[in-house]
């Protein structure tokens, strides 16, 4: 293991975060706070409870997931896209590092940022609504698992993208809609039966459901199934990354 290389990449990526603090940490916190103000405090007070949970508190896990997913993807995809775009990737490719090490450096840094962000949002939420965490250990576990999974997914997008539009299109066209339709702001049990079934094809449902369970002990879908689906998605991402590295896809001519 080239530990120095992992550290170098990780440090470099974290330095980029602090340099762009506004963009990478402050802006997601501000936008999530707005959700809490609008949905939690203003509208939430008239919504009543969902499955025994106050509406303001009910949306917290979903909102954290929303930020976690979008930020993991954007952090990781930018992290690998920028050196590809500027040409500085040559140095990483010419260094005595294995792909695993490159991956740990980039994805590790992206996931770290997302976890920090998730925790900050959790703390911020406290300012707006009271909530409990029933299974803090699992909560933290899901947080990390999701951050890693979606950072991997972002890494794949960053390698695939050959322009800034492509970098944005998947988060914008797929991830955001799936998140909004994935039970962030409501319980899928509130939907008509046919839509409940369709919704089960949305992977985000499992993530949000799983995560909400760790807070309040209530879930839309069986927790074990949810957990399994998240791990499955992680495994698929790892498989794709493995193939990318094996073939040098879009990295080497």
């Amino acid at each position: 293991m080239n530990i120095y290389a992992i550290k170098a990449i990780y440090k470099f990526e974290m330095a980029r975060t602090w340099r762009t603090l506004m963009q990478s940490i402050a802006s997601p916190i501000i936008s999530t706070s707005l959700y809490f103000v609008v949905f939690g405090a203003a509208i939430g007070s008239r919504m009543g409870e969902i499955e025994g949970v106050n509406y303001g508190a009910f949306i917290i896990p979903g909102l954290i997931m929303l930020s976690l997913m979008t930020e993991s993807i954007s952090n990781a995809s930018f992290g690998i896209y920028l050196p590809k775009f500027s040409g500085t990737i040559f140095e990483v490719l010419s260094a005595p590092v294995s792909y695993i090490e490159i991956l740990i450096g980039y994805v590790g840094a992206a996931a770290t940022k997302s976890v920090i962000l998730g925790v900050l949002i959790l703390v911020t939420a406290r300012l707006f609504v009271p909530y409990d965490i029933e299974h803090p250990f699992w909560m933290f576990g899901f947080l990390i698992l999701t951050a890693i999974t979606f950072s991997l997914f972002g890494f794949i997008i960053g390698i695939w993208a050959d322009g800034f539009e492509k970098l944005q299109i998947i988060p914008l066209m797929i991830v955001t809609p799936l998140t909004f339709l994935g039970g962030t702001f409501y319980s899928i049990k509130m939907l008509p039966p046919i839509w409940q079934t369709i919704t089960l094809f949305n992977p985000v449902v499992y993530l949000v459901s799983c995560f909400r369970w760790s807070f309040y002990g209530v879930a839309d879908v069986n927790v074990v199934v949810s957990f399994g689906m998240t791990v499955l998605f992680l495994v698929i991402c790892i498989g794709i990354v493995w193939w990318i590295f094996k073939t040098g896809y879009k990295l080497k001519n």
Partner: peptide, 9 residues
């Protein structure tokens, strides 16, 4: 420092 680290030194 980044370059040196990357090359495992």
């Amino acid at each position: 420092n980044f370059s040196r680290g990357l090359f495992g030194k």
